[in-house]
């Protein structure tokens, strides 16, 4: 069992997400930085899909009541067991009574804690991921609090300390992240200049950045004037309601674009100017308020190639860690 001494900030149980319910308004939830989450599970010898903990900015302080194996991945943050710094991106044995704690974040935004066997919370619609907005999944549908006790799963495939991710595969978290953007859906609503301005601008992450989405500041965008169609309302930033892909970009009022993440609003009436390639959401998840982001346009073939490369690398890493 894990006893939560200090919850950190918005620490939640997450797995690969709750897929298949988007059409009824359920976003997938799940780990925002999918790479860090999957590598964490591989390091501790879990089957892919075991639930882990995701925190943001401030790591939690956790006491273990059993001997087990853990791995800290994701953000660049010092981690300690009983006050001794431990390596990250490496599996570490902890004893019953040991306490995991964190120092001040150096880069990135979200640390992950994987534990042998995974965090054992009830499956809700096929997933252990927490969706805090409506209070479902994870540990009682909410972020952790001091005093919470988390059960651990018993089905770790091969828990072992000392498994380490090759240094060349450890992601760096630059203060200006680059993410690939597939332009489309309603990009025709922006003037040509504005669409170019969107991809030329270094956007700054505002304090409004969470698991639902990230809001950015940096430029103003203009829409092509038109007579609005039925159902679209009078604001030129609006279209007739439609579904929003996870990773899609809306620009309410032409200022402060929003990129939707794993707890996305599933649909609405803002023009969608493009969608961030799924594997690049990992990079967005490791940016924080004040960091900058550039959106690099790709076509569909380019987007599929980015995804294929990144998932291929994850497969290679997984096989190397068995």
């Amino acid at each position: 069992m894990i006893r939560v001494q200090d919850p950190g900030l918005e620490t939640t149980v997450q797995d690969t997400g709750r897929l298949g319910y988007y059409s009824i308004g359920f976003p997938p939830s799940g780990a925002l930085d999918s790479f860090a989450y999957h590598v964490g599970n591989a390091l501790v010898g879990n089957e892919p899909g075991a639930a882990a903990l995701e925190a943001v900015y401030l790591g939690p302080t956790l006491e273990f009541t059993v001997d087990t194996v853990i791995a800290v991945t994701g953000a660049d943050i010092p981690a300690f067991v009983d006050g001794e710094e431990i390596p990250t991106w490496e599996s570490v044995a902890v004893s019953s009574g040991s306490v995991l704690s964190f120092g001040q974040l150096r880069a990135g935004a979200r640390p992950y804690v994987a534990v042998a066997g995974g965090i054992d919370v009830p499956l809700y619609y096929g997933s252990r991921s927490t969706y805090t907005l409506v209070g479902i999944g994870g540990f009682q549908g909410r972020a952790l609090r001091a005093g919470d006790e988390l059960a651990l799963g018993a089905d770790a495939r091969d828990p072992k300390a000392g498994r380490r991710l090759d240094g060349a595969d450890v992601p760096v978290h630059p203060s200006t992240a680059e993410v690939h953007l597939l332009v489309g859906l309603h990009s025709y609503r922006l003037t040509e200049d504005s669409l170019a301005r969107f991809t030329d601008t270094e956007w700054k992450v505002t304090p409004d950045a969470n698991r639902v989405g990230y809001r950015f500041r940096g430029a103003e965008l203009e829409f092509v004037p038109r007579e609005q169609p039925f159902g679209a309302g009078s604001d030129p930033a609006n279209v007739t309601d439609c579904g929003y892909p996870v990773g899609s970009v809306q620009v309410p009022g032409g200022v402060e674009p929003i990129v939707l993440l794993q707890d996305a609003v599933t649909g609405g009436g803002y023009a969608t100017l493009g969608t961030v390639v799924s594997v690049d959401r990992d990079r967005l998840a490791q940016t924080k308020t004040g960091d900058r982001t550039r959106f690099v346009p790709v076509d569909l073939d380019g987007a599929l190639e980015v995804r294929r490369d990144r998932l291929g690398a994850l497969d290679r890493i997984r096989s190397a860690l068995t």
Binding site: L9, Y57, L58, Q104, P207, K288, T289, G290
Partner: peptide, 14 residues
């Protein structure tokens, strides 16, 4: 007399 600076543990609005 020395001086000490209190720093922020998170990003956000002060």
């Amino acid at each position: 007399m020395g001086s000490h600076t209190i720093t922020s543990r998170t990003p956000g609005v002060f």
